[in-house]
Design a protein around this nucleic acid. Structure first.
Lengths: 154, 154
DNA sequence: TCGAAATACTCAGTGCCCTGACTAATGGCG
DNA sequence: CGCCATTAGTCAGGGCACTGAGTATTTCGA
């Protein structure tokens, strides 16, 4: 009787949205490379030679998850890691040639998938959609480390 | 060079949103009961005696995941399952008294958490937020089983 | 009525995601 | 110089999420 309407719960909606995206990714982009894997590859295309921690920071993955994703990408020869000679704790990450080719190929498909995913929204609605989600996510992330709010924003 | 801006990728945003929610849930609602577990419990408060498949349909979980969630809830004595005497394939699910109490307690906290989570948005923006996410998620789910579009909507 | 298709659920396997505890390397300070 | 706090990464453990294959039960049609 005291049941709640989950369609007014942002967390529930976020989960459904992510699941829907997962499925579409699998059918339209790749069954091999996942969306988080692509995000990591993308970070390394933007800036080759990053270490794991920084990659995780850029794409929003904690150190454990980044380590797993990188292990899998390494197993498929899409990326390789070498010990930083300047700092023996770090590993420097770089895509292989095959990794670069894969990233290029998936970039095209990802763009197509986003079109399909966002098809129900008009151009203005898409802008609003991005803006609202970004604001909610950013605020929640700040609740986590209030430390660097000043740095991150102005 | 050919790197992409992930903040314009709905899938990436959806993941970040969900992660942000996960963290907030853990600190503000419960470290024991997760958000999907609460969703299952909520479905059983709304309608006691549902079978696993139907619960999964209501909250958006596939059969395997529902089975796992239910196993965990059962282990904690929050729910029990009995074989349907009418149809030996089904299990009928019901919350225990403790399950009902837990649901009631978490409902209150969940409402508080949602307030915090949505704090960055005005009342009108929240309405839009829900509407846009629901439309995108629903459309993507329909791409999956075009079969029952007519039934679901119609 | 009996056998095939459909249905509810289970199980194995893969991958994402977090926490907390641990190891190894660095870097600063007394 | 030597110790210690910090930092990068690993590992174990729990939970969510999907697929594909397999089991048991029901249902429907020849």
């Amino acid at each position: 009787m005291a049941a709640v309407d989950l369609t007014t719960h942002p967390g529930h909606l976020a989960r459904r949205l992510q699941q829907a995206h997962y499925l579409l990714w699998n059918t339209m982009v790749s069954e091999e490379v996942t969306s988080p894997q692509f995000a990591v590859m993308n970070a390394l295309v933007a800036q080759p030679g990053l270490d794991q921690r920084t990659v995780g920071e850029r794409v929003g993955l904690d150190r454990s998850t980044v380590a797993e994703v990188i292990t899998r990408l390494g197993r498929r020869e899409l990326l390789h890691k070498v010990r930083d000679p300047q700092d023996g704790r770090r590993f420097l990450l770089r895509l292989t040639d095959e990794g670069l080719r894969t990233h290029r190929r998936l970039t095209v498909r990802t763009a197509r998938m986003n079109q399909v995913f966002l098809a129900p929204l008009s151009a203005e609605e898409r802008t609003v959609f991005f803006d609202l989600i970004r604001r909610v996510a950013a605020a929640a992330e700040d609740l986590r480390d209030p430390a660097d709010q000043a740095v991150t924003r102005g």
